[in-house]
Amino acid sequence: MNWRPLLAFTGLVVPSVHAVIRFGCAQLVTQRFDPLVTPGQVSPHVHQIVGGNAFNITMDPSLDLPNLATCTTCRFKEDKSNYWTAVMYFKHPNGSFIRVPQIPNHYTGAYNGGMTVYYIQPPNFEPVTAFRPGFRMITGNPMLRNYDKIDPESPEAYSVSFRCWETTGFFDQDNMSPPGVGNYDTIHLPKKKCPAGIRANIFFPSCWDGVNLDSRDHKSHVAFMTGTVDSNRGLFFRNGTCPSTHPVRIPLLFYETYWDTRPFNDMWPTDGSQPFVLSMGDPTGYGHHGDYVFGWEGDSLQRAMDNCRDAFGDPSTCASQLTILSDAEINSCTQKPQINERVDGYLDKLPGCNPIQPGPASATMIANCDAVSTTGFSPSRTAAPAEVTAPPAVVTPAV
């Protein structure tokens, strides 16, 4: 695989030096688990999960994921982390729903479904502190149905977006802008047919308080860099400073999911309405979100951040630090769903209790739901494990 064209993909011509590792992850399992928001319970909505096979319904912070996992669906053997997002469905004109398939992104291999994961370093090889064991975080808000209360120039406004691909070529015009900006990206689901599919973009905050590995809302221990966002560059390779409350620069984590909407273009509603909906009943896309649980072996991620300095994200340039797995190896790592329900094929309704809530008001949880997803769960509850802390972060120069 040759991933050298990555800078063309970013559309950036920048004076500073940047580095990134970019790799594909095959599908591990698709089911209603979200061990960050609803630990120990079945999640209200479906997620697609990739990464190490130690993934489970609780993901207790004390678990040693790298040693518990026997395989990973991601390109590097050392990465037993877990990454997950909501699932996209197509609402058929007859009222039924069918899951939209995922396919590999450009130049990432031939794996089953999944997504592309990026760990982006600061400009000019500035020091970056890798995540610590037990670290986890989320980005986005599944209840959002509009951005009326979000500053349009803030990092939050650029953290989730969708690219409507007109063509499939890596070097085509619709792939020349950084994620989240340009003429082909929107902060909501595209309101027109996308001939070559839809790519979802999800950015996480890149500043850490240096102490807490998690927080009650799974967000407060991290923060986006301060300042407004350049509308031509977005968050990818963005220069900036961390706030004083979150002074430690961590890798900028970024997900891409390539949803193959092409099979549904001939079934587009005759009234022109947007037919795609995310698994929590969101037809807008504003509620898209991502979850992350760190699980890299030992100091492998720190080594990669210190030594893998390819601006194009080609995993082969990191082979001296990390072990590269084949497509066959990552495809063979799977889990059987533990929830006895259908999430694929034509469905009468979205799994769980997820009626379509188009907004613009924020979505609400369905009370007294008889689906297994809400057993013991109420709308007012935020799953809150005890605060988990780490030794103070010591930032050392990259070598």
Rank of each mutant, 00 (worst) to 15 (best):
M1L: 12
W3A: 12
L12F: 07
P15I: 11
G24Q: 11
G24R: 06
G24M: 05
G24H: 12
C25F: 13
L28H: 14
L28G: 13
V29T: 15
D34W: 10
D34E: 11
V42R: 06
H45W: 15
G52F: 04
I57Q: 11
T58S: 05
T58C: 01
L63C: 03
P66N: 06
P66I: 09
T70P: 00
F76D: 13
K77Y: 01
E78F: 05
K80C: 05
S81L: 00
S81R: 04
T85P: 07
T85E: 05
A86D: 15
H92Q: 13
N94M: 06
G95M: 04
F97G: 03
F97E: 10
R99N: 06
P101D: 09
P104V: 12
N105I: 06
H106C: 01
Y111R: 07
Y111L: 09
Y111P: 10
G113C: 11
G114I: 15
G114S: 12
P123L: 08
F125S: 01
E126V: 00
P127Q: 08
R132K: 14
G134H: 13
M137D: 01
P142G: 07
K149Q: 12
V160I: 15
F162T: 10
F171K: 05
F171I: 10
Y184E: 06
K191Y: 14
G197N: 09
A200D: 08
F203D: 10
F204C: 00
S215D: 15
R216I: 13
K219V: 13
K219R: 15
S220W: 06
V222M: 07
S231N: 13
R233K: 06
F237I: 04
T241P: 01
C242I: 09
P251C: 00
Y258L: 02
T270A: 12
Q274Y: 13
F276E: 02
F276I: 02
M280L: 05
G281I: 00
D282K: 01
G285M: 01
D291L: 06
W296R: 02
W296P: 03
R303M: 08
N307G: 11
F312Y: 09
D314N: 12
P315G: 03
T317K: 06
A319E: 15
T323E: 00
S326E: 12
S332D: 15
Q335R: 11
E341C: 02
R342T: 14
G345C: 05
K349S: 08
L350V: 13
L350A: 06
G352S: 04
I356V: 15
P358H: 04
T364D: 11
T375I: 04
T375G: 03
T375S: 03
S378Q: 01
A383N: 09
A384C: 08
A390Q: 13
P391M: 00
P392A: 04
V395P: 07
V399D: 13
